[in-house]
């Protein structure tokens, strides 16, 4: 059912110009340098599901989140939200209608709330921007309801952000994101700045809200255990590309891509039973990514074709994997 798809990302490219100023380039005779943060990404999310992107820092997962939220002008590709192509709409009322339905929760509970605003005003800002309240009393009531919904009390609305702990601030962020009654929430590492016991509370709140309000999540995290807990579908990212898309239980039961296997092998794990052989090497610089499959310098299965030719996503069972070795049956 194509109308079931809430977000469809096709061939998304997001390049940043990181070159030195023109004059220095002329003196040093260097050319323009492009950081390919996201380099040809395809995925889609069905309504009511949680799709997660996981990867190490610098793999471009946060860039995808911000691009989908409309915070960047994308270099190439299409982001289609509920049938509307984000990069092609010019009509202001249409843009507003979409941004009302797509909201975002940010990583830092400190930088995502304006320190000079009262919590009530922070939560009410989207309500005011989209004219969703009949009058002041209605707005007040809506904010009170939202505060209760995220486990705070209406009197908390009169305080300033600095009076709250990290976990409470993240609740405020969620209340604000919900205030324009969105259907789709982009969550960029919403719990990675929190302590584990608080993280559990926030993850539970997000699960409950999803059940109550039928929300769809695009969830970004580097923490595989959190991803496993919250997701329905998981995309593993490496250097601006997705190397594997798979339903949640499959990733951990039956990881396919060599990078996914590496990630799973290196996460510190509470059981302490597995003795890991840490893999050497680090993520290469995305300004000069390796040719062909970007993972080939660290991959134990790489051959000449991997160095030359970029693998595309191919369906294997329920999953999609971009790997020559798997395609050729070498793994």
């Amino acid at each position: 059912m194509p109308d079931d798809i809430i977000l469809d990302v096709k061939g998304l490219k997001m390049y940043f110009d990181v070159s030195a100023p023109l004059i220095s380039r002329m003196i040093r005779r260097t050319s323009k340098q492009m950081l390919k943060a996201v380099d040809g990404l395809n995925f889609s999310i069905r309504r009511g599901e949680t799709f997660s992107l996981v990867g190490e820092s610098g793999c471009g997962k946060s860039t995808v989140a911000r691009a989908v939220a409309g915070l960047y002008t994308i270099t190439d590709g299409d982001i289609v939200v509920e049938g509307e192509n984000l990069s092609k709409i010019r009509d202001k009322t249409k843009i507003a209608a979409i941004s009302k339905r797509v909201q975002m929760i940010f990583q830092s509970p400190y930088a995502s709330l304006d320190p000079r605003w009262r919590v009530r005003d922070i939560i009410a800002e989207p309500i005011r921007a989209f004219h969703l309240a009949k009058d002041k009393a209605d707005e007040r009531q809506q904010v009170d309801t939202l505060l209760r919904q995220v486990g705070l009390s209406p009197s908390d609305g009169e305080k300033y952000p600095h009076e709250f702990s990290g976990g409470q601030r993240q609740r405020i962020s969620i209340a604000r994101a919900l205030s324009s009654r969105p259907e789709f929430l982009i969550c960029d590492e919403p719990t990675s700045a929190l302590d584990v016991s608080v993280q559990a509370q926030i993850l539970n709140l997000m699960t409950e809200l999803q059940d109550d309000l039928g929300l769809t999540y695009l969830f970004i995290s580097h923490d595989l255990a959190v991803i496993d807990h919250i997701s329905d579908w998981i995309g593993v990212m490496y250097l601006g590309r997705i190397c594997e898309i798979t339903p949640q239980p499959e990733l951990f039961k039956n990881p396919l891509h060599p990078y996914t296997r590496l990630l799973l092998a290196t996460i510190p794990d509470l059981s302490g039973e597995t003795t890991h052989v840490p893999l050497e090497g680090e993520v290469p610089n995305p300004i000069n990514p390796p040719t062909g499959c970007t993972f080939h310098p660290r991959c134990p299965y790489a051959n000449e074709r991997c160095k030359r030719e970029r693998p595309e996503l191919r369906r294997i069972g329920p999953s999609e994997v971009a790997c020559h070795a798997i395609e050729e049956g070498r793994i």
Binding site: S197, Q201, L203, N204, A225, F252, L264, I267, D269
Partner: peptide, 23 residues
């Protein structure tokens, strides 16, 4: 105990994570 329970673990497949109320 509460702290250990609240850490999500791979393959656990719980709808909600156990957690310690409050802060």
């Amino acid at each position: 105990k509460g702290l250990m329970d609240s850490i999500p673990q791979i393959g656990q497949n719980l709808e909600l994570l156990p957690n310690i109320p409050g802060a």
